[in-house]
């Protein structure tokens, strides 16, 4: 790892100011993506601004159907929140299957969403729940947030402070993990929202990061059943292709996993 300078912020405002400390400063939250990347020398931030000690960015609050998850809330905290499970068990189960227990004790929802890894789990939930990404500057709709692989609408000095969404009428996330890394080869978040609209958000499979499948959404709006989407088309040309699975394999996987998600949320 290359040399770096560490700073600990105790408020969002302080974090944004501390980011000006160096010419290539970066936020660090759980560090479960950034530290491995730095160890590989694939990232070499001049400064690190630690977000984990900002109380305002931690914890889960539920007000009726409105859910707010602080960006520095760990995967383990989301996985084990009984209150959250009461209104949206799908996101708890998603968090419970990220990486392993040690990763879940450190990794945070804000870090995962900011990173937008094409095989990460949370982006599917954020898009599938039609969530809002609250930042130090504004509130961004999920639809406008993800810009393809590892790219988001975030500016350099913009901190995600929370993820907010309305509890869905029903939802499920099903992931087919890569047998070695456990990241998603394909993960589908299927939800019927309180306004009756349907979302099918897919991670791990697309060659441009997380995406919605509108044909499946329309079919499910008319008939919420695995059979309703059995004949939906998935374009191989839009799929990832790598040593773990080619695009034809992934296109089929999307259909299979989507059916399982619909069944799980029945």
């Amino acid at each position: 790892m290359y040399a770096t300078n560490y700073h600990r912020a105790s408020s969002v405002e302080e974090a944004v100011n501390l980011l000006k400390s160096g010419d290539d400063a970066k936020f660090v939250s759980g560090g479960q993506t950034l530290i491995p990347t730095m160890k590989q020398r694939l990232a070499a931030p001049s400064d690190l601004v630690d977000l984990r000690h900002i109380d305002a960015m931690k914890g889960i609050s539920i007000d009726g159907v409105q859910v707010t998850i602080g960006a520095a809330t760990t995967h383990a905290e989301v996985a084990s929140s009984a209150e959250l499970a009461g209104v949206c068990a799908a996101i708890c189960s998603l968090a419970a299957h990220i990486g392993d227990p040690a990763v879940r004790h450190m990794g945070t929802i804000g870090g995962s969403v900011a990173n937008n890894d094409p095989a990460a789990d949370y982006p599917a939930a954020v898009l599938g729940l039609d969530a809002q990404v609250r930042t130090s500057k504004r509130t961004i709709d999920a639809a406008d947030f993800f810009n393809g692989m590892f790219d988001t609408a975030l500016e350099e000095d913009e901190v995600i402070t929370a993820i907010t969404f309305q509890a869905p009428e029903k939802a499920a996330y099903v992931k087919y993990p890569n047998p070695a890394s456990r990241y998603a080869m394909c993960g589908v978040f299927a939800a019927r929202l309180k306004d009756g609209s349907v979302r099918v958000a897919i991670t791990g499979a697309g060659n441009d990061g997380v995406f919605r499948h509108t044909e499946m959404e329309e079919a499910l709006a008319a008939d919420w059943s695995p059979a309703a989407i059995a004949s939906c088309s998935v374009d191989e040309g839009d799929m990832l292709s790598d040593i773990h699975g080619d695009s034809a394999y992934r296109a089929n996987l999307v259909r299979v996993i989507a059916k399982r998600a619909v069944e799980a949320a029945a």
Binding site: Q32, A102, V103, M106
Partner: peptide, 8 residues
């Protein structure tokens, strides 16, 4: 439990 190789 955390990975001591994945934090400073």
């Amino acid at each position: 439990a955390v990975k001591s190789c994945t934090q400073l």
